[in-house]
Design a protein around this nucleic acid. Sequence first.
DNA 1: ACTTGTGAATTCGTTCACAGCA
DNA 2: TGCTGTGAACGAATTCACAAGT
Lengths: 279, 279
Amino acid sequence: MTVDRGTRPTRRAVPSSRPPGEDVEPDVAVPDDDTADAVDTTGDTADAGARPVPGATVARLAVYLRVLTSLLADGRGTVSSEELAAAAGVNSAKLRKDLSLIGSSGVRGVGYDVSRLTAEVEATLGLTRPHAVALVGVGNLGHALAGYGGFAQRGFPVAALFDVDPALVGTTIAGVEVEPVDAIGRVCAERGVTIGVVATPAAAAQPVCDQLVAAGVRSILNFAPTVLAVPAGVEVRKVDLAVEMQVLSFHVAQRHGTVPAAGLAAPAAGRTPREAVTR
Amino acid sequence: MTVDRGTRPTRRAVPSSRPPGEDVEPDVAVPDDDTADAVDTTGDTADAGARPVPGATVARLAVYLRVLTSLLADGRGTVSSEELAAAAGVNSAKLRKDLSLIGSSGVRGVGYDVSRLTAEVEATLGLTRPHAVALVGVGNLGHALAGYGGFAQRGFPVAALFDVDPALVGTTIAGVEVEPVDAIGRVCAERGVTIGVVATPAAAAQPVCDQLVAAGVRSILNFAPTVLAVPAGVEVRKVDLAVEMQVLSFHVAQRHGTVPAAGLAAPAAGRTPREAVTR
DNA sequence: ACTTGTGAATTCGTTCACAGCA
DNA sequence: TGCTGTGAACGAATTCACAAGT
């Protein structure tokens, strides 16, 4: 994933002097680059015979896990790579290669044991224990994220909330009190926060990020429309709604004219379920 | 693989029998795979001499655009590939290659003309005209998205809102009335919606997607934790918070022990500005 | 007969490094 | 001299295709 570790954009090279307006919310934004750099699972850590897991694979493991969880709930005992791949929207060869990378082992002629594989994937993703999350910026989006219960349910308890707005500090969201951003260092250390979520306006993102890093946070999910500069060793994932929308815009532009505009002429006609894609 | 609709894991193969609770919100989730397939800008359409622009490049163009907009606001006349690249968090060679792909032309020894380049990127991304957006699912996240003003400001006016909940239908959010999902077909056609945003729970995502496609929508941004099956020609971008969090979890797990846990020992110490992507 | 695991081939994307032009 | 544009080298990720288990 190329999350460009070091390349710090001169920090203020681009004065975020965005035009005024209510730009007080992150562009929300979606992902950017997915591909993660191959992380070396090897060596030092007491892990068994793990090998470097490509970043792209890690992202897919999370998708497989979702499907596996559903299968497990259904009481399914085994799955073939073909079925699992279809449900996850990938090609089966890729899925098998991904699973072989995490040392997982299926049974030829049979498939994978659902519960065992689920456990293996969870272990690989480090989901065997919860990760305390700190969410900075309780504005429009941040509030929605904080209120989203699934967060905690999935092993990512929101342990702290921060915001600069004095009007918000002190209020409680989903049982967690909003604290001032200056408290990031102290609070994160106290509560053992390992993942930080930045949902502030662009201008505030870098300073907030710096504080999180100073507090020892090494993994950050950035919803602000900015490229965060972080020291090596800190992982940043970006979710940029503006980028996503613009990529879609590009595709709309590509087929301008290809589709009868009035979206009525032979639209989804027969439907070409592409891959099988379950669910 | 035209595995026709049939191969679909029984549609309900994975009964979203998720634990109860307020699972009425999408996993939010973040991006998944970025790389979009290289789109062929060539041929039929009256476009000039456009060439196939790699999907990865398209995503980055959106990032460049953000930086360019800032520079423009600052009154900057030109930028070098080096500076622009640094601000966008990429390597300059990549940036130049990206720009050369869209036929853009800088001036050797000088750099790129900011306003001209901005216009070129916008044109490539199809941002010269607004794209009406339909947002389905006005729950926690959906509501936040609908309320986010930047949407319209950036050329993506929210032209319609939908939800199944009778309690929400009829209400108005940011000036737009929420309508029942059954109205998707009619309303989207009427208002010329070209981009659909799915922010429903997983279980409702596929049916909603089907309706959007039937209404002629060819570009969808999916926030629901599901792989959507769509006919060829329809572009789906996924934003999956669960995946993002789990990828970060993986990285946290990677360095378990590498970092003194207590996040206090030599944390961000000196910050490693480091230009060359050390890696 | 069926399905995994994986080397080899292939495709895609990034980075290098330098020629070419202002 | 400075910086773009790009061929060529490189590296990563995907897909193929088949040997190997059960």
